[in-house]
Nucleic acid binder design. Structure first.
Lengths: 143, 143
DNA sequence: TATTGTTATACTCTATAACTATA
DNA sequence: TATAGTTATAGAGTATAACAATA
């Protein structure tokens, strides 16, 4: 993509937009060997942390609509990375968990992600990375 | 959207994703009175800063493909906010500028955006906002 | 009646590749 | 040949609303 320098006094919004876009591109490249998009990778991570868990809980962690979760879990199911099972305690609900392949892919994906992050964030010192995280977190928590 | 607290140790990538999504939602709400999406608002801002300017230059500032610019300028044209004219120096090129309505809308939009930003960022001190901007900028510049 | 998840539908943002009209 | 922009096509991510099954 052709680029120009950013304007002299970019708003935080512009910076956030560009940073998120860069992140998406990099995450997209990082997940390519496994055919996993950034959104799918995030869902895999959440499911891995909480499995077995309901779709509604996944939606809350991902902070997206139930609709989006149905889709992303469908697509991960097609890849063979997650399994659905009815919740015995509430037959309206669906429990989702990682398959063996899903567990393996998540591990490899996390390794790839960390190595890409190390690369991208290497321009910032560890203290600066912490500070950035702290500030972003406050933004995301109140929002 | 239903929400859960973030994980104890969220990666910078997760934070960036959530922050950008929050930004998009807020920017989307802020532009609604004028029927302008966040992407359209960004394009309007770039055109306002550089007008009259070529589509290719707009693409470089926005850091997106020429394809996306054709679309967004089309849509802004339909809203009556921008005008296209052939570049007299190079008839392959197209110069785009704001109409009177576009100029007015951009002003109002910027006011709305700043007021929303003041609200969202008010949890951070001015020094922290500067620091966040500085860190993000380094991330975006090297990426 | 309320909740869980699905279907139906639609919009925004982004990309690559092939084409056109100039240069 | 190379560049500017458009058309054609595709896919990711997200949302709202109406609905079925179950509680």
């Amino acid at each position: 993509m052709p680029r120009r320098p950013l304007p002299a006094d970019p708003s935080l919004g512009e910076l956030l937009t560009h940073a998120a876009r860069t992140l998406r591109r990099r995450a997209s490249a990082a997940g390519e060997p496994w055919g996993v998009s950034p959104h799918q990778a995030r869902a895999l991570r959440v499911i891995g942390r909480h499995q077995p868990t309901r779709l509604g809980i996944v939606a809350e962690h991902l902070r997206v609509s139930p609709r989006s979760v149905t889709d992303v879990v469908d697509s991960l199911g097609k890849l063979g990375y997650v399994d659905r099972a009815p919740d015995p305690d509430d037959r309206r609900a669906t429990l989702v968990s990682l398959t063996e392949a899903g567990t393996r892919v998540l591990t490899e994906l996390e390794r790839a992600r960390r190595s890409d992050a190390d690369d991208w964030f290497s321009g910032l010192s560890p203290a600066e990375q912490d500070e950035l995280g702290r500030l972003l977190r406050r933004l995301v928590d109140d929002a």
